[in-house]
C-alpha cells in the first residue's frame, strides 16, 4: 500500500499530541485557589461577579489545592505565610500554575524593606504570570489570566516543571529564608 502517507508517530509525538489536547482543556477550565494574603485580593470579587465575570473564561474559585490549577498569590507574603504557601503549592496536582498579583510578589512593593516579608516570590516557587500594579486594577487581573491561557497554549507556562527540575535550588532558597524547623508539630511551624 503505497498510497498511505502516514508515517509511524513516535511515542514522543503521540505524547505531545495528547498533551496539546490536554492543554486545550486545561486552558479553558482554570480553577483557582486564592491565597489572599494582601490587599490585591479586593480586586477578585469584581473579577468574579457580574462586572467582569471570570466564569465565561471557564475559571472559578475552588476550595482546596488538590482540585485547583492556579495558585493565586495576591500580595505580600510574610515568612509565616510563605511556609504555608509552599506547603499548599506542593499539594497541588500537576500541571499547576502560579499567578502573582501586585508588585509585592515581584519586588516586595511597599514592603520591600520589611524584615518579615519576602521580596521576590520567584525565588521560592516558580511564577508563571505576574500582574503588576499596586494594586492592579481588575482589567489587568483579567488580562493576566488571558496571558496565562496564551502561555499554556504556547507551552511556556512551565513553572511546575521548573520547580520539579530545580527543586534543590528552590529548596535552598526556601531554607535560607525560613530556616530549618527542628520540632515538627502544630506550634513550631
Amino acid at each position: 500500500m503505497k498510497s498511505t502517507k502516514f508515517s509511524e508517530l513516535s511515542q514522543e509525538q503521540v505524547d505531545r499530541k495528547w498533551w496539546e489536547i490536554g492543554d486545550f482543556f486545561r486552558r479553558n477550565s482554570l480553577w483557582m485557589l486564592m491565597y489572599c494574603t494582601g490587599c490585591c485580593a479586593i480586586e477578585l470579587p469584581p473579577a468574579m461577579t457580574s462586572a467582569y465575570d471570570m466564569e465565561r473564561l471557564g475559571m472559578g474559585p475552588m476550595a482546596t489545592p488538590r482540585q485547583a490549577d492556579i495558585l493565586l498569590v495576591s500580595g505580600y507574603l510574610s515568612l509565616k505565610t510563605l511556609r504555608r504557601l509552599i506547603y499548599t503549592y506542593e499539594q497541588m496536582s500537576e500541571p499547576k500554575y502560579v499567578v502573582g498579583l501586585g508588585s509585592c510578589t515581584i519586588n516586595g512593593g511597599i514592603y520591600h524593606d520589611s524584615h518579615a516579608v519576602i521580596n521576590q516570590l520567584d525565588q521560592y516557587v516558580p511564577v508563571d504570570v505576574y500582574v503588576a500594579g499596586c494594586m492592579p486594577n481588575t482589567e489587568a487581573v483579567m488580562n493576566g489570566f488571558v496571558d496565562l491561557m496564551d502561555a499554556i497554549k504556547h507551552k511556556t507556562a512551565n513553572g511546575w516543571k521548573k520547580y520539579r527540575d530545580n527543586y534543590d535550588w528552590y529548596r535552598q532558597n526556601q531554607i535560607a529564608s525560613l530556616g530549618e524547623v527542628e520540632v515538627h508539630d502544630e506550634f513550631h511551624e
Partner: peptide
C-alpha cells in the same frame, strides 16, 4: 446574576 456565564459545554471541559 447578570453575568455572561460559561460556555454550555463548560462541564465537559472541566
Amino acid at each position: 446574576q447578570k453575568r455572561y456565564g460559561p460556555k454550555w459545554y463548560q462541564e465537559f471541559l472541566d
